[in-house]
């Protein structure tokens, strides 16, 4: 955590912090952005969750993700600069994780989609040869993520197979978030593994949970309709800018502030 403020805007490029495309650091920043952004979204539930117990559960998941993000950023540069001083276009998180929390069903479905993907990704990274620093993180974090997936699975089953209202909301969340799932399996430069091969096991795993929850797998495209690229290219959905402003404003107003 450096106390040295960086000139605002200095990192306002799509590369960000001088990380070179194609390197491990390049991939690490994208994965870190996924973890940080979802961590922040989950953190937004604190004080608003439907039950105190669930609030702690969501905050625990958020903190796990924050820990992963910190390690991944440290492979590429200064954590604070990367998290707080990059502009929207320099973030390369998948759009799925920046989607607003919506209702509880929406948060849970987003988590099911993402954690299922992240668990498969980390399993592959941990098994890759040579494992490297990403592999070391993945081997450790995969147990955390397995719990995140289980938490989302348990809730999907209960919401889908719960009341007509919870069923309807969960089905809406599935249908609404589906178009953001395709991007997860796009190639990510600098990664030692292929991400497109994760889609089949991901689909099998998600389908099993959704079916067991008496819900229906979405049938539409798993892609956003416009072709400008996705989060991995620095193209984000509209709510992301507002989220980033809230996440970054303290550090930008008081550079180097610490607890």
């Amino acid at each position: 955590m450096s106390g040295e403020p960086t000139e605002p805007g200095a990192l306002a490029t799509t590369t960000g912090a001088g990380v070179t495309p194609g390197t491990t650091a390049w991939a690490a920043v994208a994965l870190a952005d996924d973890a940080l952004v979802l961590s922040h979204r989950l953190g937004e539930w604190v004080g608003h969750a439907p039950a105190l117990e669930e609030e702690v559960a969501l905050a625990n998941i958020a903190l796990d993700l924050l820990g992963q993000a910190r390690f991944l950023y440290s492979l590429a540069g200064d954590e604070d600069e990367l998290a707080y001083l990059r502009e929207e276009r320099a973030f390369r998180n998948a759009q799925l994780v920046e989607r607003p929390n919506g209702d509880f069903a929406s948060t849970i479905v987003r988590q099911l989609f993402f954690s299922t993907y992240q668990e498969l990704l980390y399993q592959e990274l941990a098994a890759a040869e040579p494992a490297g620093e990403l592999g070391a993180l993945a081997a450790k974090a995969v147990k955390e993520v397995a719990y995140h997936r289980d938490h989302a699975t348990q809730w999907t089953l209960r919401l889908g197979d719960g009341t007509p209202e919870s069923h309807r909301r969960t089905q809406e969340a599935l249908d609404g978030l589906w178009r953001y799932t395709g991007e997860l399996f796009d190639p990510l430069e600098g990664l030692a593994i292929r991400t497109d091969t994760l889609r089949q096991p991901w689909l099998a795993s998600v389908t099993e949970v959704v079916t067991r929850a008496t819900l229906t797998m979405p049938e539409g495209t798993e892609r956003i309709s416009w072709a400008a690229g996705g989060g991995r290219q620095g193209v984000h959905t509209e709510p992301f800018g507002r989220m980033l402003a809230e996440m970054q404003h303290l550090h930008r107003a008081h550079p180097g502030a610490s607890w």
Binding site: A51, L52, E53, E54, V56, N60, D150, Q154
Partner: peptide
């Protein structure tokens, strides 16, 4: 003690509240 809708969720809440 804690609140949970069923036993499986109670186990998970307990993990998050008492063994973190």
């Amino acid at each position: 003690s804690l609140h949970a809708p069923d036993a499986q969720m109670a186990l998970r809440n307990a993990r998050d509240l008492f063994t973190r």
